[in-house]
Design a protein around this nucleic acid. Structure first.
Lengths: 282, 282
DNA sequence: TACCACTCACTGGTCATACCAGTTCTCGAG
DNA sequence: CTCGAGAACTGGTATGACCAGTGAGTGGTA
């Protein structure tokens, strides 16, 4: 059973392949990609299609073309955009390593949840301060709509993402809206990744209902506190359950995930601070 | 005096022109761009170059090509990514309207500052919890380096952005790192926009020094509180000064900016919530 | 008259080839 | 050994052709 649609545009497919290769470290940062002519023939596409794919990667901050020299591979830890998150998670969840780290999957998910958490806290807070009655009514209606989709995972995820969209709009902060757009777009493009977010849909709906109530009360303080507490507990539960699942599941993941992750998610990214990692003395 | 370098790649130049046109509403959301063949000849470039530009816009969520139909213009309020912020600010700052709103400039800046503010609060908090001594030393050294660049605006801005980069890394949250990368990349591409952020460099340096101290103390609570308070005051001052400047400066901006902006920045964006506005019976 | 299926003139997607414009490295002149 | 001219790369753009979806107009049918 093929995991993705086979009928995609060649350029997009090529972009995905190259992106994966770069994120997996096949083409190390600082090096040059093979020449466009060679690479295109190797991939079985025309140079033009290759260039379309490269344009995409350039926009994502993975590659910088240098006229006369080559397509330089950038260090995505320095220049990669948020839109990489979905791809990174997809790679990590497939049991692969990301730049030599096997525990990247859960760590990355913990990072993302942490970002989601405090972004949501602020969004709910601002919404409580600024949302109009019409917006609140719309959001409430949407939550009830979403509650009817519990049995349809894909539709449910879409609805959940739309909840985030609506909530973000209610902050009346356009920068936040654009930020949410970016993240939502990534998750929509990676349905599998988005699904891992939602192990407890009924609980989510309950939380959402209460959130709307708090927003309607215009008590930003309480709204923030509630969101922080509830989503925090939710994420903790989700991560611990996922850690259990993955340590039992077939993928080649050694039992190296303990709950320490939940307290202080780490992802070493020391290109500048700590160049050498040869010795590790616990 | 030309505002930008004339020697740029045609594709990039084209992408900028098209992006501006879309953001200004020349091509309304939902409509189709002119055919690629016509558009390319009209712009005086080859279709190939045009397509390279379109690929960029597609990655930014501004356009979705529909095979056999046309290049559909999307509503960037629904699908636009964060990378649009810089361009939007540039347009708004040039005195132009953005989608019919004249006060977009200051409002947008206020939005962005708000985002920056609470992101910084969390970043400093997490950094206080997780930063290593080496990272703290590096950051401290960088602040002193930045302090020497007060007389060189461009280098100073670059250094300031790098401060943000270093600080974000210290959170050990890769999602935050990528998010910062995206925003920093935008600001680096729009030097003029970035400059408006920094009307008081010496004050910034002072704040940064204290921030590093608080991070080193590993008192996340205090670090967050300080950051929230200081950056808040800083942003308020910056906005009020900018409001004064623009209401006096030559650009065709009517005196419609009052300090109410600072309290509750608004940007109406009701495309989805109210499909039909013909009848409204409460 | 109303409706449905087909056709064809669009659209974007891909390709092959050629040439321009930078960069890098080699190799010979000094 | 140093250095500079040029050859041999690299990416950037242009042209023209063809493939592949889309959608509206057309014609026929019920």
């Amino acid at each position: 059973m093929p995991s993705s649609r086979d009928k995609k545009r060649a350029a997009e497919e090529t972009a995905n392949r190259l992106r994966d290769a770069i994120l997996r470290g096949v083409y190390p940062a600082g090096s040059d990609l093979p020449g466009e002519r060679e690479l295109s023939t190797r991939l079985g596409i025309s140079r033009l299609t290759l260039r379309a794919a490269l344009a995409r990667l350039e926009a994502e901050g993975l590659v910088r073309p240098v006229h006369g020299s080559g397509n330089r591979v950038l260090d995505f830890q320095d220049t990669g955009g948020v839109e990489l998150l979905g791809h990174l998670l997809a790679i990590a969840n497939s049991g692969e390593e990301v730049r030599g780290r096997k525990d990247a999957g859960l760590t990355l998910l913990a990072n993302l949840l942490e970002l989601r958490r405090f972004a949501a806290v602020e969004a709910v807070g601002f919404a409580a301060e600024r949302a109009t009655p019409e917006e609140i009514a719309t959001l409430r209606a949407h939550v009830e709509h979403q509650a009817l989709l519990l049995s349809q995972p894909e539709a449910y995820v879409r609805a959940d993402l739309h909840f985030a969209r609506l909530l973000t709009r209610m902050t009346h902060n356009f920068a936040l809206v654009l930020l949410a757009n970016t993240i939502i777009r990534v998750l929509e493009a990676q349905p599998g990744v988005a699904l891992t977010f939602f192990l407890d849909p009924p609980g989510t709906i309950t939380v959402y209902r209460r959130m709307v109530d708090l927003i309607e009360s215009h008590d930003a303080q309480a709204a923030r506190a509630f969101t922080r507490r509830l989503i925090g507990a939710f994420d903790r539960g989700l991560l611990s359950r996922l850690a259990t699942l993955t340590s039992v599941a077939p993928p080649p993941l050694p039992p190296s995930h303990d709950d320490a992750l939940l307290e202080s998610p780490h992802l070493v990214s020391q290109d500048a601070p700590l160049p050498k990692t040869t010795k590790e003395v616990p």
